[in-house]
Amino acid sequence: MSTSSLQSPGTVVVDGPGVAVLPARGRRRGRGTGVSVRVGVVLLLVALVVGALTIAALSGVRVFDVRTPSMGTAAPVGSLVVTRPATAGDLAVGEVITFRPGAGGDRYTHRIDASGPSGIRTKGDVNGSPDAWLLDPSDTVGRVVAVLPVVGWAGRALPWIVAAVALVWFATGFLAPGDLRSALRLFGAALSVAVVGAVLRPFVALQLLGTSADAGDGVARVVSTGVLPIRVTVTDGGSAHLLSGGTAELAVPGDTDGVFHVASRLDLSVTGWAVLGLVCAVPVVVAFVVGRTTAPLVDAGASAAPAAEDAR
Protein backbone atom coordinates (compact mmCIF):
# COMPACT_ATOMS: atom_id res chain seq x y z
CA MET A 1 0.00 0.00 0.00
CA SER A 2 1.34 3.43 -0.87
CA THR A 3 -0.04 6.91 -0.32
CA SER A 4 0.57 10.21 -2.11
CA SER A 5 -1.02 13.60 -1.44
CA LEU A 6 -1.40 16.82 -3.42
CA GLN A 7 -1.88 20.22 -1.83
CA SER A 8 -3.84 21.71 -4.75
CA PRO A 9 -6.51 21.63 -6.05
CA GLY A 10 -7.43 18.87 -3.56
CA THR A 11 -6.07 15.96 -1.54
CA VAL A 12 -5.64 12.73 -3.53
CA VAL A 13 -5.48 9.50 -1.57
CA VAL A 14 -4.35 6.35 -3.38
CA ASP A 15 -5.11 3.08 -1.60
CA GLY A 16 -4.57 0.08 -3.82
CA PRO A 17 -6.52 0.22 -7.11
CA GLY A 18 -9.01 2.85 -5.89
CA VAL A 19 -8.54 6.61 -6.22
CA ALA A 20 -10.52 9.06 -4.10
CA VAL A 21 -10.45 12.80 -4.72
CA LEU A 22 -11.51 15.06 -1.89
CA PRO A 23 -12.83 18.50 -2.96
CA ALA A 24 -10.53 21.44 -2.42
CA ARG A 25 -11.57 23.82 0.32
CA GLY A 26 -11.20 26.72 -2.13
CA ARG A 27 -13.90 25.50 -4.54
CA ARG A 28 -16.76 27.93 -5.04
CA ARG A 29 -20.45 27.20 -4.77
CA GLY A 30 -22.39 26.33 -7.87
CA ARG A 31 -23.12 29.31 -10.09
CA GLY A 32 -26.86 28.63 -10.00
CA THR A 33 -27.01 29.01 -6.20
CA GLY A 34 -25.17 32.35 -6.26
CA VAL A 35 -27.38 33.72 -9.03
CA SER A 36 -30.54 32.66 -7.20
CA VAL A 37 -29.44 34.41 -4.02
CA ARG A 38 -28.61 37.63 -5.86
CA VAL A 39 -31.89 37.60 -7.77
CA GLY A 40 -33.79 37.00 -4.53
CA VAL A 41 -32.06 39.92 -2.80
CA VAL A 42 -32.77 42.24 -5.74
CA LEU A 43 -36.43 41.23 -5.87
CA LEU A 44 -36.76 41.77 -2.11
CA LEU A 45 -35.24 45.26 -2.35
CA VAL A 46 -37.51 46.15 -5.27
CA ALA A 47 -40.56 44.94 -3.35
CA LEU A 48 -39.59 47.01 -0.30
CA VAL A 49 -39.05 50.15 -2.40
CA VAL A 50 -42.34 49.71 -4.30
CA GLY A 51 -44.19 49.08 -1.04
CA ALA A 52 -42.74 52.19 0.61
CA LEU A 53 -43.55 54.36 -2.41
CA THR A 54 -47.09 53.01 -2.56
CA ILE A 55 -47.73 53.77 1.11
CA ALA A 56 -46.26 57.28 0.70
CA ALA A 57 -48.39 57.97 -2.38
CA LEU A 58 -51.57 56.83 -0.63
CA SER A 59 -50.82 59.22 2.24
CA GLY A 60 -50.52 62.16 -0.18
CA VAL A 61 -46.72 62.41 -0.31
CA ARG A 62 -45.36 63.66 -3.65
CA VAL A 63 -41.81 64.12 -4.95
CA PHE A 64 -40.58 66.60 -7.57
CA ASP A 65 -37.26 67.09 -9.35
CA VAL A 66 -35.87 70.65 -9.18
CA ARG A 67 -34.93 71.81 -12.70
CA THR A 68 -34.33 75.58 -12.21
CA PRO A 69 -32.09 77.50 -9.76
CA SER A 70 -34.73 79.88 -8.40
CA MET A 71 -34.51 78.52 -4.84
CA GLY A 72 -30.72 78.80 -4.60
CA THR A 73 -29.10 76.73 -1.85
CA ALA A 74 -32.47 75.90 -0.26
CA ALA A 75 -33.28 73.56 -3.15
CA PRO A 76 -30.43 73.42 -5.68
CA VAL A 77 -30.89 72.16 -9.21
CA GLY A 78 -30.94 68.37 -9.18
CA SER A 79 -32.56 68.11 -5.74
CA LEU A 80 -35.65 66.07 -5.02
CA VAL A 81 -38.29 67.89 -2.95
CA VAL A 82 -40.76 65.88 -0.89
CA THR A 83 -44.17 67.43 -0.18
CA ARG A 84 -47.15 66.60 1.99
CA PRO A 85 -50.66 67.99 1.63
CA ALA A 86 -51.41 71.18 3.56
CA THR A 87 -54.38 73.54 3.77
CA ALA A 88 -54.03 77.29 3.26
CA GLY A 89 -54.70 77.89 6.95
CA ASP A 90 -51.73 75.73 7.93
CA LEU A 91 -49.25 77.60 5.71
CA ALA A 92 -47.18 80.52 6.99
CA VAL A 93 -44.98 83.18 5.42
CA GLY A 94 -41.46 81.81 4.92
CA GLU A 95 -42.49 78.22 4.29
CA VAL A 96 -41.58 76.52 1.01
CA ILE A 97 -44.46 75.07 -1.01
CA THR A 98 -44.97 73.36 -4.33
CA PHE A 99 -47.84 74.72 -6.39
CA ARG A 100 -49.38 74.89 -9.84
CA PRO A 101 -50.60 78.38 -10.80
CA GLY A 102 -53.70 77.94 -12.92
CA ALA A 103 -55.18 74.74 -14.27
CA GLY A 104 -52.75 72.63 -16.27
CA GLY A 105 -49.72 74.85 -15.59
CA ASP A 106 -46.20 73.83 -14.60
CA ARG A 107 -45.35 73.03 -11.01
CA TYR A 108 -43.08 75.41 -9.07
CA THR A 109 -41.40 75.22 -5.69
CA HIS A 110 -41.03 78.69 -4.11
CA ARG A 111 -41.19 80.33 -0.71
CA ILE A 112 -44.33 82.07 0.59
CA ASP A 113 -43.61 85.81 0.49
CA ALA A 114 -47.00 87.06 1.63
CA SER A 115 -50.39 85.59 2.49
CA GLY A 116 -53.79 87.15 2.94
CA PRO A 117 -57.51 86.88 2.15
CA SER A 118 -56.83 87.62 -1.52
CA GLY A 119 -54.38 84.75 -1.92
CA ILE A 120 -50.76 83.62 -1.50
CA ARG A 121 -47.80 85.46 -3.00
CA THR A 122 -44.61 83.44 -3.61
CA LYS A 123 -41.02 84.23 -4.52
CA GLY A 124 -37.91 82.26 -5.44
CA ASP A 125 -35.00 82.85 -3.07
CA VAL A 126 -32.67 84.09 -5.80
CA ASN A 127 -35.30 86.00 -7.79
CA GLY A 128 -35.25 89.78 -7.60
CA SER A 129 -39.02 90.20 -7.23
CA PRO A 130 -42.08 88.17 -6.16
CA ASP A 131 -43.87 85.95 -8.65
CA ALA A 132 -46.45 87.61 -10.89
CA TRP A 133 -49.28 85.30 -9.89
CA LEU A 134 -51.50 85.30 -6.81
CA LEU A 135 -52.23 81.74 -5.72
CA ASP A 136 -55.58 80.37 -4.76
CA PRO A 137 -55.48 77.73 -1.96
CA SER A 138 -56.52 75.11 -4.52
CA ASP A 139 -53.32 75.81 -6.49
CA THR A 140 -51.17 74.42 -3.67
CA VAL A 141 -49.79 70.91 -4.16
CA GLY A 142 -48.22 70.63 -0.72
CA ARG A 143 -45.74 71.88 1.84
CA VAL A 144 -42.10 70.91 1.26
CA VAL A 145 -41.05 68.67 4.16
CA ALA A 146 -37.69 67.47 2.84
CA VAL A 147 -35.10 68.42 0.23
CA LEU A 148 -32.81 65.64 -0.99
CA PRO A 149 -29.78 67.12 -2.80
CA VAL A 150 -28.40 65.27 -5.85
CA VAL A 151 -31.20 62.65 -5.76
CA GLY A 152 -32.97 64.38 -8.64
CA TRP A 153 -29.82 64.11 -10.78
CA ALA A 154 -29.59 60.41 -9.87
CA GLY A 155 -33.20 59.87 -10.87
CA ARG A 156 -32.59 61.47 -14.27
CA ALA A 157 -29.37 59.57 -14.93
CA LEU A 158 -30.33 56.12 -13.63
CA PRO A 159 -32.64 55.01 -16.48
CA TRP A 160 -30.03 55.94 -19.10
CA ILE A 161 -27.21 54.23 -17.18
CA VAL A 162 -29.26 51.06 -16.64
CA ALA A 163 -30.19 50.92 -20.34
CA ALA A 164 -26.58 51.45 -21.43
CA VAL A 165 -25.18 48.86 -19.02
CA ALA A 166 -27.85 46.34 -20.11
CA LEU A 167 -26.83 46.91 -23.73
CA VAL A 168 -23.17 46.32 -22.82
CA TRP A 169 -24.07 43.11 -20.97
CA PHE A 170 -26.11 41.87 -23.94
CA ALA A 171 -23.39 42.77 -26.47
CA THR A 172 -20.70 40.95 -24.47
CA GLY A 173 -22.89 37.94 -23.74
CA PHE A 174 -21.70 36.28 -26.95
CA LEU A 175 -18.14 36.15 -25.62
CA ALA A 176 -16.90 33.19 -23.63
CA PRO A 177 -16.70 33.73 -19.85
CA GLY A 178 -13.29 34.97 -18.87
CA ASP A 179 -11.10 37.97 -18.27
CA LEU A 180 -11.92 39.62 -21.64
CA ARG A 181 -15.67 39.62 -21.08
CA SER A 182 -15.34 40.84 -17.50
CA ALA A 183 -12.98 43.62 -18.55
CA LEU A 184 -15.25 44.75 -21.38
CA ARG A 185 -18.29 44.80 -19.12
CA LEU A 186 -16.49 46.82 -16.46
CA PHE A 187 -15.17 49.25 -19.08
CA GLY A 188 -18.63 49.53 -20.67
CA ALA A 189 -20.30 50.27 -17.33
CA ALA A 190 -17.75 52.98 -16.51
CA LEU A 191 -18.07 54.47 -20.00
CA SER A 192 -21.87 54.51 -19.67
CA VAL A 193 -21.68 56.52 -16.46
CA ALA A 194 -19.14 58.91 -18.02
CA VAL A 195 -21.22 59.54 -21.16
CA VAL A 196 -24.46 60.13 -19.22
CA GLY A 197 -22.59 62.49 -16.90
CA ALA A 198 -21.16 64.42 -19.86
CA VAL A 199 -24.65 64.83 -21.37
CA LEU A 200 -26.50 65.82 -18.18
CA ARG A 201 -23.58 67.85 -16.74
CA PRO A 202 -24.55 67.44 -13.08
CA PHE A 203 -21.13 68.19 -11.61
CA VAL A 204 -20.04 71.62 -12.86
CA ALA A 205 -22.53 74.07 -14.37
CA LEU A 206 -23.25 77.78 -14.22
CA GLN A 207 -26.16 80.04 -15.13
CA LEU A 208 -26.20 83.80 -15.64
CA LEU A 209 -29.11 85.37 -13.77
CA GLY A 210 -28.65 88.90 -15.08
CA THR A 211 -26.39 91.91 -15.49
CA SER A 212 -26.50 95.52 -14.35
CA ALA A 213 -24.36 98.66 -14.59
CA ASP A 214 -22.98 100.50 -11.60
CA ALA A 215 -20.93 103.71 -11.98
CA GLY A 216 -19.54 102.70 -15.35
CA ASP A 217 -18.63 99.17 -14.30
CA GLY A 218 -20.93 96.19 -14.78
CA VAL A 219 -22.12 93.50 -12.41
CA ALA A 220 -22.91 89.94 -13.45
CA ARG A 221 -25.11 87.84 -11.17
CA VAL A 222 -24.50 84.10 -11.50
CA VAL A 223 -25.68 80.90 -9.81
CA SER A 224 -24.05 77.47 -9.62
CA THR A 225 -26.34 74.74 -10.97
CA GLY A 226 -23.90 71.86 -10.52
CA VAL A 227 -23.25 69.56 -7.58
CA LEU A 228 -19.57 70.27 -6.89
CA PRO A 229 -17.98 73.49 -5.57
CA ILE A 230 -16.65 75.77 -8.30
CA ARG A 231 -14.57 78.92 -8.79
CA VAL A 232 -16.27 81.45 -11.09
CA THR A 233 -14.15 84.16 -12.70
CA VAL A 234 -14.88 87.06 -15.02
CA THR A 235 -11.94 87.88 -17.27
CA ASP A 236 -10.24 90.98 -15.82
CA GLY A 237 -13.08 91.14 -13.33
CA GLY A 238 -14.39 89.53 -10.17
CA SER A 239 -14.11 85.97 -8.85
CA ALA A 240 -16.07 83.91 -6.34
CA HIS A 241 -16.25 80.44 -4.79
CA LEU A 242 -19.72 78.90 -5.13
CA LEU A 243 -21.38 75.84 -3.67
CA SER A 244 -24.35 74.10 -5.28
CA GLY A 245 -27.13 76.67 -5.62
CA GLY A 246 -24.92 79.52 -4.47
CA THR A 247 -25.09 82.96 -6.10
CA ALA A 248 -22.55 85.74 -6.54
CA GLU A 249 -22.32 89.22 -8.03
CA LEU A 250 -19.12 89.58 -10.04
CA ALA A 251 -17.56 92.83 -11.20
CA VAL A 252 -17.35 93.23 -14.97
CA PRO A 253 -14.85 95.71 -16.53
CA GLY A 254 -16.52 98.77 -18.01
CA ASP A 255 -14.58 98.63 -21.30
CA THR A 256 -16.06 95.33 -22.53
CA ASP A 257 -18.76 96.92 -24.74
CA GLY A 258 -21.28 94.57 -23.15
CA VAL A 259 -19.32 91.41 -24.01
CA PHE A 260 -17.46 89.59 -21.24
CA HIS A 261 -16.24 86.05 -20.57
CA VAL A 262 -17.19 84.03 -17.49
CA ALA A 263 -15.27 80.82 -16.70
CA SER A 264 -15.87 78.16 -14.07
CA ARG A 265 -13.70 75.33 -12.76
CA LEU A 266 -13.69 72.83 -9.93
CA ASP A 267 -12.61 74.39 -6.63
CA LEU A 268 -12.18 71.54 -4.15
CA SER A 269 -10.25 71.26 -0.92
CA VAL A 270 -7.42 68.76 -0.55
CA THR A 271 -9.86 66.32 1.04
CA GLY A 272 -12.34 66.90 -1.77
CA TRP A 273 -9.75 66.14 -4.44
CA ALA A 274 -8.74 62.98 -2.55
CA VAL A 275 -12.36 61.78 -2.35
CA LEU A 276 -12.90 62.54 -6.05
CA GLY A 277 -9.76 60.59 -6.93
CA LEU A 278 -10.95 57.59 -4.91
CA VAL A 279 -14.35 57.65 -6.62
CA CYS A 280 -12.71 57.77 -10.06
CA ALA A 281 -10.44 54.87 -9.06
CA VAL A 282 -13.37 52.59 -8.14
CA PRO A 283 -13.45 50.79 -11.54
CA VAL A 284 -9.72 50.08 -11.34
CA VAL A 285 -10.01 48.78 -7.77
CA VAL A 286 -12.99 46.59 -8.68
CA ALA A 287 -11.12 45.15 -11.67
CA PHE A 288 -8.11 44.40 -9.46
CA VAL A 289 -10.21 42.73 -6.76
CA VAL A 290 -12.16 40.65 -9.27
CA GLY A 291 -8.94 39.58 -10.97
CA ARG A 292 -7.41 38.55 -7.65
CA THR A 293 -10.41 36.60 -6.38
CA THR A 294 -11.43 34.84 -9.60
CA ALA A 295 -9.52 31.60 -10.19
CA PRO A 296 -10.28 28.82 -12.72
CA LEU A 297 -11.67 25.59 -11.32
CA VAL A 298 -9.62 22.45 -12.05
CA ASP A 299 -11.44 19.29 -13.04
CA ALA A 300 -11.03 16.68 -10.31
CA GLY A 301 -10.87 13.78 -12.76
CA ALA A 302 -8.02 15.35 -14.67
CA SER A 303 -6.01 16.03 -11.54
CA ALA A 304 -6.32 12.47 -10.29
CA ALA A 305 -4.32 10.88 -13.12
CA PRO A 306 -0.92 12.46 -12.29
CA ALA A 307 -1.50 11.63 -8.65
CA ALA A 308 -2.12 7.98 -9.45
CA GLU A 309 1.05 7.78 -11.52
CA ASP A 310 3.04 9.37 -8.74
CA ALA A 311 1.74 6.78 -6.28
CA ARG A 312 2.96 3.73 -8.17
Results as ranks from 00 to 15, higher is better:
residue 2 S to M: 06
residue 124 G to A: 10
residue 214 D to W: 02
residue 30 G to K: 07
residue 6 L to I: 12
residue 177 P to G: 10
residue 39 V to W: 05
residue 149 P to T: 06
residue 122 T to G: 09
residue 98 T to V: 09
residue 118 S to Y: 11
residue 203 F to D: 12
residue 297 L to C: 04
residue 101 P to D: 06
residue 209 L to R: 00
residue 125 D to G: 02
residue 227 V to K: 00
residue 149 P to Q: 07
residue 281 A to R: 06
residue 215 A to F: 01
residue 257 D to E: 09
residue 208 L to Y: 01
residue 304 A to H: 00
residue 239 S to Y: 02
residue 301 G to S: 10
residue 216 G to S: 07
residue 206 L to W: 01
residue 48 L to S: 08
residue 260 F to H: 01
residue 269 S to F: 05
residue 70 S to P: 01
residue 30 G to T: 11
residue 208 L to C: 02
residue 304 A to C: 10
residue 247 T to G: 08
residue 295 A to P: 00
residue 240 A to Y: 00
residue 123 K to P: 04
residue 249 E to Q: 12
residue 233 T to V: 15
residue 288 F to L: 15
residue 262 V to N: 03
residue 291 G to Q: 12
residue 134 L to S: 10
residue 291 G to N: 11
residue 294 T to R: 09
residue 256 T to P: 01
residue 36 S to I: 04
residue 104 G to Q: 06
residue 239 S to I: 08
residue 184 L to Q: 11
residue 264 S to M: 09
residue 78 G to W: 07
residue 29 R to M: 15
residue 79 S to F: 03
residue 212 S to M: 02
residue 161 I to K: 00
residue 53 L to N: 11
residue 203 F to K: 00
residue 193 V to E: 03
residue 122 T to Y: 01
residue 228 L to N: 13
residue 207 Q to N: 09
residue 188 G to C: 10
residue 145 V to M: 08
residue 21 V to E: 02
residue 128 G to C: 03
residue 121 R to I: 13
residue 184 L to V: 08
residue 13 V to M: 10
residue 251 A to T: 14
residue 234 V to E: 10
residue 164 A to Q: 09
residue 61 V to G: 04
residue 78 G to S: 07
residue 12 V to A: 12
residue 96 V to R: 00
residue 241 H to F: 11
residue 30 G to L: 08
residue 297 L to S: 13
residue 177 P to F: 09
residue 94 G to A: 07
residue 62 R to W: 00
residue 216 G to K: 03
residue 64 F to Y: 11
residue 71 M to I: 04
residue 117 P to Q: 07
